[in-house]
């Protein structure tokens, strides 16, 4: 392997030339991305583009899915995270709120938060309850009884209990009502404003580009496109492929056209 270039001082999380396979199937091929300190970086892409694989690789849980890192390097500041055990990755400050929330439904809200950070100081708990007051109100309730949006809040609160430097969010607004998605989006901005860098994976490209400073577009396991989010949002290709708009059509029309095409 070529020596990776020195990590820039302002980089919270860096992925270089990452290749991941699930047994014989290659899922990521030479993916590189950076999360600058204090910023929100988005990863866009269609289903199966490798977004969740990227998250699993960073968090070190590929083995739960029969996957492994072939080559490349993942690092957080000076610490190399490639192939590290998940608990070491969490300890070095990279924590994920996984796709589908994955809260512990048989446990209480309070216990879920404990799992996130057993030794979290009181001010961290307070920060979580300030961000998500509903979790404070429901702390004794079974987590499975929360609504979808509240479960997403719990998943994010649980991840914040570990005091991450970099928060990985995999599809935080998936399946939520627009109003709740908006609320979650605002919270992501607030978490970032308080100093946590965020790597955000989203299918909702419009939302992701609005929240983030910089974005990468994954396509079949490779970075197809990258750039400042505002520029990507303005680019024709991204608008056509990920935002569902072409030059002269409104989003609604584009969606309709999509359905017709699918039927035919």
């Amino acid at each position: 392997m070529v020596n990776p270039p020195a990590v820039r001082d302002g980089t919270a999380l860096s992925v270089r030339d990452l290749t991941v396979s699930y047994r014989a199937v290659r899922a990521l091929h030479g993916v590189s991305l950076q999360v600058p300190r204090g910023e929100i970086v988005a990863v866009l892409g269609a289903n199966g583009a490798g977004k969740t694989t990227l998250m699993r690789a960073i968090s070190g849980v590929l083995r739960f899915h029969g996957g492994s890192v072939g080559s490349g390097q993942i690092s957080c500041g000076e610490t190399t995270l490639t192939k590290a055990a998940p608990h070491r990755i969490v300890a070095s400050g990279v924590v994920q709120a996984p796709e589908g929330r994955r809260i512990f439904g048989r446990m209480s809200v309070e216990e879920n938060l404990r799992v996130g950070g057993f030794h979290a100081p009181a001010e961290v708990r307070k920060r979580v309850f300030d961000l998500f007051p509903i979790l404070g109100e429901r702390r004794a309730q079974r987590a499975s009884l929360l609504s979808g949006g509240e479960q997403q809040m719990l998943a994010m609160g649980r991840a914040l209990m570990a005091q991450p430097k970099v928060l990985l969010l995999d599809e935080p607004t998936l399946g939520l009502a627009p109003k709740m998605a908006e609320h979650i989006a605002n919270t992501v901005t607030e978490i970032n404003r308080q100093g946590t860098s965020v790597l955000l994976v989203e299918q909702n490209a419009a939302l992701a580009l609005r929240l983030s400073n910089y974005a990468y577009v994954l396509d079949v396991g490779e970075v197809a496109l990258e750039g400042a989010s505002a520029e990507l949002a303005a680019s024709d290709e991204v608008r056509r492929r990920y935002l569902g708009v072409s030059e002269d059509a409104t989003p609604v029309l584009a969606a309709r056209r999509g359905i017709t095409k699918w039927k035919g």
């Binding site: 070190g60 608990h87 300890a91 924590v95 996984p98 994955r102 991840a159 570990a162």
Partner: peptide, 20 residues
């Protein structure tokens, strides 16, 4: 005990949260 119950419910997510 809490870790134990978390692992019983979802071992991958427990690992994601830093449980060994």
């Amino acid at each position: 005990g809490v870790s134990m119950r978390a692992v019983a419910e979802d071992s991958e997510t427990s690992a994601l949260m830093g449980i060994r």
